[in-house]
Design a protein around this nucleic acid. Structure first.
Length: 616
DNA sequence: TTTAGGG
DNA sequence: CCCTAAA
């Protein structure tokens, strides 16, 4: 499990004293990410109820914690620069300190991402937290404060160590059930808005929206773009007071164990324990219903009767939850991006490619009935003269999405500042240009640049052929791979930014002769239509060819093989670019096709068999 | 999920 | 190559 932060809070008057402490043990691993956990200091009453710690107890714990600063790094003061500690520690601290500096925002959010991967772990750990070991539990009943406090303190030092090891639970975990995972303890390091609820609100009131957003981020570990001051304030306040209270029916203490109630919205993870979805709904709209009574109520001093507050922050690391994010995340996003890039393109094309006068003439010609233009118009489907645009868009494949994703991720990895990303953009753009001119194949992603020489001299220049990495090696046997691709939508202008080039990755991978042969072989072996098999057995090495691809290619081959006058085929139709399929292969194709048609669809097995006999 | 066929 | 209906 990731690094944990623990903070001891005054349950009565929340957040008056919050001690942030990084778990020293967990910090050693570099790969681990901060999973902020706020531990609420409580005492277990005789009846098993949870009694919030008093101020005195808090002070004591704080004292103890401070005494331990030597052993475990503490981040009590934002101004304090950590001068020791492992890299990860430093990172942590850095991210903490940078909370209110926009420069480090990237770092912080980046750090959040990997947390997604460990959700399950988190979940697991959280669940473990809910179970109170029977052992050592009694003692806390007997002892009036101190010992529990000490235990809690121990817990704070090594929050969930055991869960990460999968080992038995640490004894100090006794108090853990009362731990709360919330956004992050950075709130402490923050320009303290104030943590008592009242004063906190007061302070929040004085903050600008931006500051509120920062605070929000500090609290929840994620960005928000919400500009609703009220909502932000409320959100922050809620976050600080654990954001929600699990209804009594959800969690209860039984036999010294914390039982998690139904409340299983399964939503990825941890959030399952948090009944915050409703509130989330509100968040989406930035609407603020006066308050969620439950939460406030839950904090009235009858802590014992009220359910244990266990809040596992499903905010942390999850980008989907918040309204703002959620709005942008999904499909619309892609669409939106596409649209945006589309607009750019449109503008560009309007300016450069398609002269404005052409536009007029275009629509005019359409009525005239010129072939090409007519088609264009029909494509557009309206009087609006956007045939080119619509054409271009049509050419944009679905793979873009992943491509975009890759682009983003890789870009994110590299970029630290806006300038840098800009730089990247320019670089790849540059690459693109170079590719065009020099006929060099490359994968223009910022992260990976693979260059392969493209032997081809027929064309004036080689299109930037974005080839899959692995394939190039295999395909080395054959030559004209890059030139074969269709060139219809190849009108990319040089200035087309990265996205474009990245987006046309998987497209138009020219079939090499060897591939074709393999395909024919496969067809002969397994029969026409067995593309899935062929793909699996004969094309296992060519991951980029799908069964559909095989089918399509076969279709093309068929067409080619039956069209008479191969010379013409080679000469004009295929041009220079495309792979020249040996007539022998075409012959095979024809034979296979014949067999297939002869054998009748009656019996598949027989068909295959005969095919086999024919060629084996 | 695969296949067949249209775009 | 993409998309989709149908199996």
């Amino acid at each position: 499990m990731g690094t944990m932060f623990g903070s001891v809070e005054d349950c009565g008057e929340m957040f008056q004293d919050t001690i942030v402490q990084t778990g020293g043990a967990s910090l050693s691993s570099t790969t681990q990410i901060g999973n902020p956990v706020v531990y609420k200091l409580v005492r277990v009453g005789r009846d098993g109820r949870l009694v919030p710690a008093t101020d005195e107890e808090l002070l004591e714990v704080e004292y103890l914690l401070r005494n331990n600063e030597n052993d475990t790094s503490t981040v009590p003061d934002p101004g304090q620069t950590p001068d020791e500690g492992s890299p990860s520690q430093f990172l942590q601290l850095e991210s903490l300190e940078g909370l209110y500096q926009s420069e480090t925002a990237e770092v912080y959010t980046e750090k959040l991402n990997p947390r997604l991967e460990s959700k399950e772990e988190l979940m697991y750990g959280s669940q473990m937290l809910f179970t109170l070991p029977d052992t050592n539990y009694q003692s806390s009943n007997e002892l009036p404060g101190n010992e529990e406090l000490v235990q809690s303190e121990v817990l704070l030092q090594e929050p969930i160590r055991s869960s990460s090891n999968g080992c038995s639970m640490d004894q100090s975990m006794d108090a853990s059930p009362y731990s709360n995972v919330t956004g992050s303890p950075e709130a402490t390091a923050a320009p303290k808005p104030g943590f008592s609820r009242d004063s906190g609100k007061t302070c929040l009131n004085n903050l600008s929206i931006k500051a509120l957003q920062e605070t929000f981020r500090a609290t929840f570990g994620r960005e928000t773009t919400c500009k609703d001051k009220r909502w932000l304030k409320r959100r922050i306040t809620m976050g600080l007071i654990n954001s929600c209270v699990i209804p009594a029916t959800s969690l209860e203490v039984n036999d010294n164990k914390l039982i998690g109630g139904g409340q299983n919205n399964n939503n990825d993870t941890i959030g399952a324990f948090c009944n915050d979805t409703v509130d989330e709904g509100r968040a989406n709209n930035c609407n603020d219903t006066p308050s969620s009574p439950d939460c406030i109520k839950g904090h009235s001093n009858d802590f014992g009767d009220s359910p244990v507050e266990i809040f596992v922050d499903h905010y942390s690391g999850n980008e989907d939850f918040e309204g703002e994010s959620a709005k942008r995340v999904r499909k619309p996003t892609r669409r939106y991006i596409e649209e945006v890039s589309e607009v750019d393109e449109k503008q560009q094309s309007n300016e450069s490619l398609v002269p404005s006068k052409d536009d007029k003439s275009l629509s005019a010609v359409s009525s005239g009935g010129r072939v090409v233009v007519t088609r264009m118009v029909s494509l557009a489907g309206s009087r609006i003269q956007v045939p080119y645009v619509s054409h271009v868009r049509r050419s944009r494949p679905r793979e873009n999405i992943t491509a975009l994703g890759e682009f983003h991720s890789s870009s994110w990895k590299v970029k630290g500042t806006p300038e840098e990303s800009k730089l990247n953009l320019r670089l790849s753009q540059l690459n693109y240009d170079v590719n065009r001119v020099s006929g060099v194949k490359s994968v223009p992603g910022p992260g990976q640049k693979e260059l392969a020489i493209n032997h081809q001299s027929d064309k004036d220049f080689a299109r930037p052929n974005l080839s899959e990495v692995a394939q190039d090696a295999m395909e080395a046997e054959h030559i004209d791979c890059s030139s074969g691709d269709s060139s219809d939508d190849d009108n990319d202008r040089v200035d087309r930014p990265v996205m474009r080039s990245v987006s046309r990755r998987k497209h138009h991978r020219a079939w090499t002769v060897s591939e074709v042969i393999k395909l024919v072989e496969g067809v002969s072996k397994y029969g026409v239509g067995k593309w899935s098999e062929i793909k699996r057995l004969s094309f296992s090495s060519f991951a980029y060819r799908t069964s559909v691809d095989l089918k399509d290619k076969w279709r093309n081959l068929l067409k080619a093989s039956f069209s008479q006058n191969p010379s013409k085929r080679m000469g004009s139709l295929k041009k220079y670019g495309s792979t020249v399929i040996p007539s022998q292969v075409l012959l095979q194709v024809r034979e296979l096709a014949q067999k297939q048609s002869l054998v009748s669809p009656a019996n598949d097995g027989r068909r295959v068999k005969e095919s086999r006999n024919g060629f084996l």
